[in-house]
Design a protein around this nucleic acid. Structure first.
Length: 594
RNA sequence: GGUCUCGUAGCUCAGCUGGAUAGAGCAGCAGCCUUCUAAGCUGCGGGUCGCAGGUUCGAGUCCUGCCGGGAUCACCA
């Protein structure tokens, strides 16, 4: 809102001086860089052309006018084409008084509330969750929470890929070589089923080798291997509703869901609704029929159905196989429409890796061809892969970083570090383990979420995730120190009752902090618009860093001037509240002591 | 090969959508705990923003071309 006030003031000054309307797109205020005096800066270069004046003169004139007209503008200075404006303390103090006790904040430019369905996670039931899923889950969950904080109605959904040839492979392997329940095997259900999948692959490869030794070409061997034929037979039986196969399928998927639930719980993510592909994979066929009848699609000689996107620079896309069965995109057409109707969604966000950019491009184009106006409301939140030093994670090469293992490792590191520092000494065991959980997962979440979702990121398992510097625990620690400070203030009766006494002049460090806190709502809206928790994460770091500098150099409880002491205490509380709120949106819990 | 995408300090990342002398953390070195929690704070060193052009008052950011990495172009999902 400061921005809005300044903009209006600027336009007013501009018109008064030059009897012209300034080009709105050039009126952009930015935070003044710390090495200069001022709070907000506008660059006047763009206006020189219109007015044929030197930038320094222009800035000087506009600055004078602004100062003359607005009490808010305390002073100004001009450096080259930059007009630096100092905002009066009364504004900052007003903002401070109004917000310092708030524990909930909303975005600055509260946009009109939308109904947004966001799909994330979308696991396969033949593999346990790994680091890639962690990024997906944290991102999806956090973006959903951020959008809520921006005033939207958000529905979190998950679409589980629970059917298809891959799960049949696990089932077959279990029949042949497994036979144990997760309890008997003493492992999580998703892990057990994952192992069966790997086992299938191993045995299958052996068969291919054997066939090759008989002189059969590799691709043919791959198709003719008995295990593959059996798996395919199983899939046919599944589709036909064979009760034995269905029973086995339900049992094994049940194991997997139990395992997934454990992982989701610890990770702290949740869903309003979980869809299963076994229920949705047939959707979309009607839409294909519809497209056929209105000429959007066409049938080839073998009976398969296609959509021609060549005039849009893409290729032909298969929508139904010759035998009438559907493919991946067929179901996506169907689920999109289903979801659209079910939730009357204004927007549907899909959190899916950037390897599927092409798929979503095609999906939207096909929906448009079908005359679905809501195709525009589909948004692919395309995020980058998590890579290891040696490149992509490959399940076959055993280089995947397992989600459960990683979380456990993080919590264990937190336990060790905290104990070494002697910080757990006074805690009872239950509180202590809760703290380790907070810190370990806080470190992990911050590590993942602080990087721009769009970018590929690197994870080095050899170096454990840091707890010092730009990290989750650093921010948590800052919060804990503030809480401790406030506890002390309470117990010694130093806590100011309500409002703080009047302050003659806002000290510099406090001023800096208030300015940063003022930026929070803007950051919140930016992180929503950009679907980027990273903006919030980086903001939290800046705020914590700024506070630590303040904390280091300025006494709070020891300050003798009552007004200043009250200001500092309230300010500390304000910082803690903001950190806690932002942390919540990233799924990071903030400890009261650590 | 076509399309898309990325390239910033030894390493991991920022850089507010075109603005001032490109910033943090880690790693290295040097300091700060009889004072509100040292998971902290302060300082030092470290850069041809992949390369070359172009657009303009102004480019790490925009456009073009190279070089290098990745993804994708399935009757897999």
């Amino acid at each position: 809102m400061l921005d809005t006030i300044l903009k209006e003031a600027f336009i007013e000054a501009y018109q008064a001086l030059y009897e012209k309307h300034p080009d709105l797109k050039h009126i952009v205020f930015q935070a003044t860089r710390p090495e200069f005096r001022g709070d907000a800066t506008i660059v006047v270069f763009p206006f020189t052309k219109d007015l044929k004046k030197a930038p320094e003169i222009l800035a000087q004139e506009l600055g004078s006018k602004l100062k003359e007209n607005h009490r808010l503008v305390r002073d100004f200075n001009v450096i080259k084409g930059f007009l630096n404006i100092e905002i009066d303390d009364s504004y900052w103090l007003g903002f401070f008084r109004k917000n310092s006790d708030k524990t909930s904040f909303c975005a600055e430019f509260s946009p009109s509330s939308k109904r947004i369905v966001i799909e994330y996670s979308s696991p396969n039931t033949n593999k346990p969750l790994h680091l890639g899923h962690i990024r997906n889950n944290l991102l999806g969950w956090s973006v959903a929470e951020i959008l809520k904080a921006n005033g939207h109605k958000v529905i979190k959904v998950n679409l589980v890929n629970d059917r298809g040839i891959h799960i049949c492979k696990s089932m077959l392997a279990w029949q042949k070589w497994g036979g144990m329940t997760p309890e008997q095997a003493g492992m999580k259900g998703d892990k057990l089923v994952g192992e069966m999948y790997v086992r299938f692959d191993k045995e299958y490869k052996k068969e291919i080798e054997a066939l090759k030794n008989e002189g059969i070409a590799e691709d043919e061997a791959a198709r003719k291997a008995p295990l593959m034929l059996e798996a395919q037979e199983m899939l046919r039986k599944w589709e036909a509703g064979d009760s034995d196969v269905r029973q086995l399928w339900e049992m094994m998927n049940g194991w997997v869901y139990e395992g997934f639930d454990t992982t989701y719980n610890r990770l702290g993510v949740d869903f309003e609704k979980i869809y299963h592909e076994s229920e949705t994979y047939l959707l979309g066929k009607d839409m294909v029929a519809q497209g056929l009848s209105n000429g959007a699609f066409y049938r080839k000689e073998d009976g398969s159905v296609w959509c021609d996107l060549r005039d849009e620079g893409l290729d032909e896309k298969l929508l139904l196989r010759a035998d009438g069965t559907s493919v991946y995109i067929t179901q996506d057409l169907g689920t999109a429409e289903q979801r659209m109707q079910e939730y009357e969604a204004d927007q549907m966000i899909y959190v899916v890796g950037n390897e599927q950019n092409y798929h979503f491009d095609v999906l939207k184009r096909i929906l448009k061809k079908l005359g679905k106006p809501w195709a525009e409301n589909i948004e692919h939140l395309s995020y980058g892969m998590v890579e290891l030093p040696e490149g992509k994670m490959k399940s076959r090469e055993g280089t995947v970083v397992d989600a459960d293992d990683l979380m456990e490792e993080m919590v264990e590191t937190a336990r060790r570090t905290t104990t070494e520092l002697g910080k757990a000494d006074e805690l009872d065991p239950a509180d202590a383990s809760q703290l380790f959980e907070m810190i370990g997962l806080g470190a992990l979440k911050y590590f993942i979420l602080k990087v721009d979702p769009k970018k590929t990121m690197l994870f080095n398992p050899a170096e454990s995730i840091d707890f010092n510097g730009n990290t989750g625990p650093f921010i948590q620690y800052t919060h804990a120190r503030i809480r401790s400070l406030l506890r002390k203030a309470e117990s010694t009766g130093l806590m100011p009752a309500n409002d703080i006494p009047p302050i003659a002049q806002l000290p510099e460090k406090e001023r800096q902090l208030i300015k940063l806190l003022h930026q929070y709502s803007y950051t919140l809206s930016q992180s929503g618009e950009n679907r980027s928790p990273a903006l919030l994460a980086n903001y939290m770091y800046d705020l914590a860093k700024e506070f630590n500098q303040f904390y280091q150099s300025e006494p709070v409880l020891r300050e003798e001037n009552e007004a200043i002491r009250a200001l500092r205490l309230k300010l500390s509380g304000f910082v803690a509240n903001t950190l806690r709120h932002a942390g919540q949106l990233l799924g990071m819990k903030m400890p009261d002591r650590m």
